[in-house]
Nucleic acid binder design. Structure first.
Lengths: 159, 159
DNA sequence: CGATAATAGTTTCATTTGCAACTAAATCAA
DNA sequence: TTGATTTAGTTGCAAATGAAACTATTATCG
């Protein structure tokens, strides 16, 4: 006894909806925490996070690793530089490029954010057994492979 | 041999980041499809989806079920009414309220979108065994319980 | 070499978004 | 009843986003 739609669709069970709601809730909470405790945005945090591991990379590389687009990296980087958390060193060989890195103050913030970020992640994962957490990561990986756009997000030239 | 941050954090393994990237990719793709094939936004679709199942509910009830805030529901509903996909019938007993419902044209769109939405969901879930898909929903449910804001999103009065 | 194309990164602009403020109507309390 | 409070829903506005246009520089190829 189906309705006209053939199959039914309950929003609550619809994966794209569930992912969106969950991701928004998580992002909201963690953004509040970053903002309150460190006065940085999620995008600024992403940049600090990759610079903390890979000092001296370019803006384009940051965009690739954070899956942010170029304007977003440009803006977030600019404000981090303003605040003295990030340094920019222009490349002598190719003057279009510049190497980004954490300043001393930037590394202090980086070091301070890490445990808070991990603690929030743990708060989420506390609902799950270690095996479940492992399973979750595997599932997300497989979904991401299917959902990921083929083309680069940070530069639309080839579209 | 830890660095100064104590524990390490790789963005690629950080759950909030992974959720955000996955959800954005999924939303982008499905929004493109809705727009291309039906000329509706995700928010408009959410409203059609709940009205398709619960005809005659109020704007506030729509907001509650879609987890959209009130202005978002108001705007999306207004354009759906403009396009003749949704009807509004003001409540005679309480003239602040009105009942929303699908018009004939609205139900046609609803019926047309359902199989496309389910097909896209299946495309995602094709990467997973039925057991994995089941597991995924359970995991998302548990995470959502932890991440969900305590307060209502669609009305901030009590904050 | 010199013109054309490609790349790095920034700026601009239109759209979207999220929240506050608002209007209108109903409820509550004295 | 009537003044204060609550509720339903809309409008306005400031900030965030995303795509395109732009500048500056380097690479390619005749």
């Amino acid at each position: 006894m189906n309705d006209d739609a053939g199959d039914k669709l309950r929003l609550d069970n619809f994966l794209p909806y569930r992912l969106s709601v969950l991701s928004n809730a998580v992002s909201r909470k963690i953004a509040d925490m970053y903002e309150r405790e460190f006065d940085i945005s999620i995008w600024q945090w992403r940049i600090l996070a990759v610079l903390g591991e890979s000092d001296g990379i370019t803006s384009t590389e940051v965009a690739a690793r954070t899956l942010m687009d170029k304007p977003a990296v440009s803006r977030a980087t600019a404000s981090l530089i303003d605040r003295g958390l990030v340094t920019r060193t222009s490349d002598v060989a190719d003057r279009r490029k510049s190497a980004l890195g954490l300043s001393t103050a930037g590394r202090e913030v980086y070091n301070a954010v890490i445990p808070r970020a991990l603690a929030y992640e743990q708060e989420l994962l506390a609902a799950l057994s270690p095996e479940d957490a492992e399973a979750l990561h595997g599932l997300l990986t497989r979904l991401a492979q299917i959902a990921s756009p083929e083309r680069d997000l940070w530069d639309m030239r080839e579209g």
